[in-house]
């Protein structure tokens, strides 16, 4: 078995890299694939809390690459999903505790065991970024429809290409159809036009993402969530299926609205 290493990156912080990693990882295992999510944000790890696995951490990525710990010992198995694992980042070490070469070796090792290795990249373009992309076969660039995010995404695409990564796909996150409609937010075409990369998917702004992060349960677990639906579609695309884009007209059905209100109230 030879899997694929995909780095999830964005340049700018706070646009949804970790949320994207958690949701795509979970959704891919729901499709029956074996997935490991690697948090490379050393010093500021978060994938563990987003996944609700923070209490299960014993060893981390630095323990593994510096040779003290066996990879199998450090991997945290998510008991909710068959085939889903997390390799957490170290919280107390420096970014330089891992080198690009070590990261590459680690990714090659993980590729043998898993269909997908999803690498959650830290914000910025320094050492942490260089480490995260060093073992990757392809990249997912996450951007929100704001000038600062699109600008950074453009820079990141340039750096990825310079590093020899040529399959870079875009996820547009937190789009607000209502704002797009009244001309106050860039739409999908605008962003693709500017960045000239392939579109992998579009995720609408959805409060459920915050609710699910609060609980440590990725939004894809909630079948009524629009963001979850969008992530499930993206996962199927990564899995090789052709899936239509999530329609963005925000007029969700009345029944759905009621269902959601009811769900919110019962939480």
């Amino acid at each position: 078995m030879k899997g694929k290493v995909i780095v999830i990156t964005s340049g700018k912080g706070g646009v949804g890299k970790t949320t994207t990693t958690a949701n795509l990882g979970t959704a891919l295992t729901m499709l029956g694939r074996r997935v490991v999510m690697v948090d490379t944000d050393i010093g500021l790890r978060n994938l563990d809390v987003v996944m609700g696995l923070e209490n299960r951490i014993v060893f981390d990525i630095v323990d593994v690459v510096t040779g003290g710990t066996k990879l199998k010992q450090a991997l945290i198995k998510d008991k909710r999903f068959e085939g889903l694992y997390l390799l957490p980042a170290a919280q107390t070490k420096e970014k330089t505790a891992v080198s690009p070469h070590q990261m590459k070796t680690l990714c090659n090792e993980l590729k043998k065991e898993f269909d997908f290795v999803l690498v959650d990249c830290p914000a910025g373009i320094e050492q942490g970024f260089k480490n995260a992309i060093s073992g990757a076969d392809e990249a997912i660039v996450v951007a929100v429809p704001e000038v600062s995010s699109v600008r950074d995404a453009d820079g990141i695409v340039g750096l990825l290409e310079a590093a020899g990564l040529n399959k870079n796909q875009l996820i547009i996150n937190r789009i607000r159809p209502r704002m797009v409609k009244r001309g106050d937010m860039m739409d999908i075409e605008d962003m693709i036009d500017i960045l000239s990369v392939d579109l992998l998917g579009v995720v609408p702004e959805d409060e459920i993402v915050i609710v699910s992060t609060n609980k440590g349960e990725p939004a894809v677990m909630d079948t009524s969530s629009r963001a979850g639906d969008a992530y499930r579609r993206i996962a199927r695309r990564l899995n090789g299926e052709e899936v239509s884009m999530l329609p963005l007209n925000h007029s969700e059905g009345l029944m759905n609205k009621f269902r959601r209100m009811f769900k919110m109230a019962s939480r």
């Binding site: 000038v147 699109v150 600008r151 453009d154 820079g155 340039g158 797009v180 001309g183 860039m186 500017i194």
Partner: peptide
């Protein structure tokens, strides 16, 4: 809307960035 302003500004800044 403000989108057009955003697009114009982005295009300019990206020329310099690139």
């Amino acid at each position: 809307g403000s989108k057009n302003v955003a697009m114009e500004r982005l295009k300019l800044v990206l020329v310099h960035d690139r």
